[in-house]
């Protein structure tokens, strides 16, 4: 019986300086009509420190998901530049980015019946060396298996290893997707609405998992959420987008404020302190008739 150790073969060294640095980052979708003039992301400049959790919030269509896709190399930077670990995104290959950045997408539909273990192991793809004669059978190295195992332990999905991903509950599936992202051994984790389709129990579970992983793995986390309370409770800083422009960036206390939210969302909300953490808590106002 083969055994593998859980010792990490590539110890994670925190990035030097800011993990992500955007300098005048702009992006627009190409279209033949004049609408192509509109910037989806309009000259954004900000940085994300190594080991911090940055929340990106804003109304629908404000460019949150586009920003995340640029950070993971899915969309190309239009103008300006983004530095990942000090190196321009444009100078990195897709595989190079994938060894540094892992993505937990908003929707994850698996068409084919893959098991949990197979799915998590696919996270090792960017680390794989392929020879021209290789057919891929038995390509998984001991360090691939160890990294996948550690990712499954950290997300508590080891017991689900031989289950089909399609048979899992929403919360379990989200943990598997996070496990796959962790198997990439990234230094930056990008999450797009990780709690969008989950019940409250799974929302809590996923949010505390992300907070724990950040602490254990010194991960830099960028989290897009339409839920202002998730951003307020779990993020060190919050970046507010409105129509592709950076409205405000700072601690939850600086950003989650009634006057800022009125400017960004165009409506009045009640903001008080969370009874446990003292962080801003957003609730809908009762309309007095």
């Amino acid at each position: 019986m083969t055994t593998y150790t859980t010792e990490r073969t590539s110890p994670l060294s925190p990035l030097e300086g800011p993990a992500i640095e955007a300098k005048g980052l702009s992006f627009r979708y190409y279209s033949k009509e004049g609408r192509g003039r509109m910037w989806t992301l309009d000259h954004l400049s900000f940085h994300v420190d190594a080991g911090e959790i940055l929340g990106i919030v804003g109304p629908n269509g404000s460019g949150k998901s586009s920003l995340l896709k640029i950070l993971s190399g899915l969309l190309r930077v239009g103008e300006g530049d983004v530095l990942l670990g000090g190196t321009s995104l444009q100078k990195r290959s897709q595989a190079d980015i994938a060894r540094l950045v892992a993505v937990v997408p908003q929707e994850y539909a698996q068409v084919f019946p893959f098991t949990v273990a197979e799915t998590v192991l696919m996270g090792r793809f960017p680390h794989r060396t392929v020879h021209w004669w290789s057919m891929g059978i038995g390509d998984e190295t001991a360090s691939d298996l160890a990294a996948a195992h550690q990712a499954m332990v950290d997300t508590d999905v080891v017991s689900l290893a031989d289950r089909l991903v399609s048979d899992l509950s929403g919360g379990e599936r989200q943990r598997v997707v996070i496990a796959r992202a962790l198997a990439q051994e990234p230094q930056i984790l990008l999450l797009d609405e990780p709690t969008a389709f989950l019940d409250i129990n799974h929302q809590i579970e996923i949010c505390s998992l992300v907070a724990r992983l950040r602490a254990e793995r010194q991960l830099t986390v960028v989290l897009v959420s339409h839920d202002l309370n998730v951003a307020s409770q779990y993020c060190d800083r919050v970046l507010m987008l409105k129509e592709g422009q950076l409205c405000r960036i700072g601690s939850p206390e600086e950003t989650i404020r009634p006057e800022v939210l009125r400017m960004v969302y165009g409506c009045d909300v009640v903001v008080d302190a969370h009874p446990q953490t003292g962080r801003p808590r957003v609730t809908m106002p009762m309309n007095m008739v």
């Binding site: 980015i97 060894r99 950045v101 993505v103 696919m122 793809f125 021209w132 990439q184």
Partner: peptide, 24 residues
Amino acid sequence: LMHKAQLLNVLTLGEETACSLGVE
């Protein structure tokens, strides 16, 4: 095709996921 079997696995996860796993 057999040489590209592992790529096919990753492609079934969707284009964006494949891309974020380093596939051009």
